[in-house]
Amino acid sequence: MQQTHQQLIKVNGIRLSVHIAGPESGKPVWLLHGFPECWYSWRHQIAALAAQGYRVFAPEMRGYGATEAPEAVEAYDLITLCADIQGAMNHFGHQQVAMIGHDWGAPVAWHLALLEPARVKAVCGMSVPFGGRPRQPAINMMREAYKDRFHYILYFQKPGLAEAELASDIPRTMRLMMHGLDSQEGGALVQDKPADAAWLDDYSDPGKPPAWCSEEAFEVYVKTFEQSGFRGPVNWYRNFERNWERTEQLAGRQIEQPALFLIGDRDPVGILEAYTIKKMPGVVPKVEQHVIADCGHWIQAEKPDEVNSFLLPFLEHHFPAT
């Protein structure tokens, strides 16, 4: 693992933890993690990017680890999450950056490209595509489509419920989610059981993390959630209506920057987002899309060499390190 150092900075009304690596003179690349992850999920990219001469910034996103976790649900809307990173860019004096995000980090990266067209020179999203602002909040469509089935996002909507289940045994939760999101067959995003059932009750603990996650890395994940819990991370899912309201000014806007989208062929999100992936070139005209074979949801850790083989040339072409 590339040597990193942690800085705690005050931005946007919270304490933000940022892990930094690479030469001080290098161009800044931001790596935004998703759920249920941590900054360390980028360990393979941090090493590769730093070796290329980039200055790498991997924050613990709002609600995670050493970053503060406000209690209010509305403290986790998308524009506020973007403002955390905008404030951090201001703090470090960044004039031009590359922005990279996975899972929930991807919508933050996509929207930062819209909000900061002069500063975000290249953008990459992994697993979650950008389809533009929908005609109504996505949660409304989910409620209609899955009213008789279990959907994890609908389960997350009731404050207190999901975070209690997930925090009851954090190592078990992380093992189940790592294995369950490793393939479409094991993916537990939509299930044929009552809509108000618990999420992970039906699954047996595999006893160890998947092969792509070392015990050392697994401990970093577990310690992240032992430190912060799950309330803040799950609150990200409780802001679909607020996200829709606060992005009204972005309706119809395209992402004009060079863009890269990566997804694993066994990522269950790919099934849920198939239509958005197909329409993405219409709203991100300069997007380059790649599907990584034999890969689940945890793309940058499952297939780091393949991810880096697309990411590094993309950045070298559009945001060269020197």
Rank of each mutant, 00 (worst) to 15 (best):
A69P: 02
K10G: 10
H33T: 01
F261P: 02
A58G: 11
Q3I: 14
H19I: 09
D305S: 14
A167Q: 04
T322Q: 15
Q7W: 04
R135H: 15
E144D: 15
T67A: 05
Y203T: 07
A188P: 09
E165P: 00
D205R: 08
Q254P: 02
H19D: 10
D205T: 11
T4R: 00
H94E: 12
D84T: 04
G160V: 01
L154A: 06
Q136V: 13
Q6A: 14
L315Y: 01
V120F: 03
T247Q: 09
R231W: 02
V56A: 03
P313A: 08
D77V: 01
I271R: 14
N235G: 02
A122I: 08
A51I: 11
V120R: 03
V307K: 02
P233C: 06
V29Y: 06
Q254T: 14
Q52W: 07
A138M: 15
C213T: 02
S309F: 08
G101V: 12
R43W: 06
D192I: 11
I255R: 01
H297S: 04
P268I: 07
R149D: 14
H94G: 07
Q7K: 12
E306D: 14
A167N: 07
L272Q: 13
K158W: 06
T4K: 05
K121W: 05
P59K: 01
L31M: 10
E163T: 00
I170M: 10
G282Q: 09
Q184E: 15
H44Y: 14
Q2A: 15
K278A: 15
A188N: 15
T4M: 06
R172P: 04
I79H: 01
L161D: 00
D84L: 04
A51F: 13
P258L: 06
T67H: 03
L16A: 06
V56C: 03
R55M: 09
R15S: 14
E185D: 13
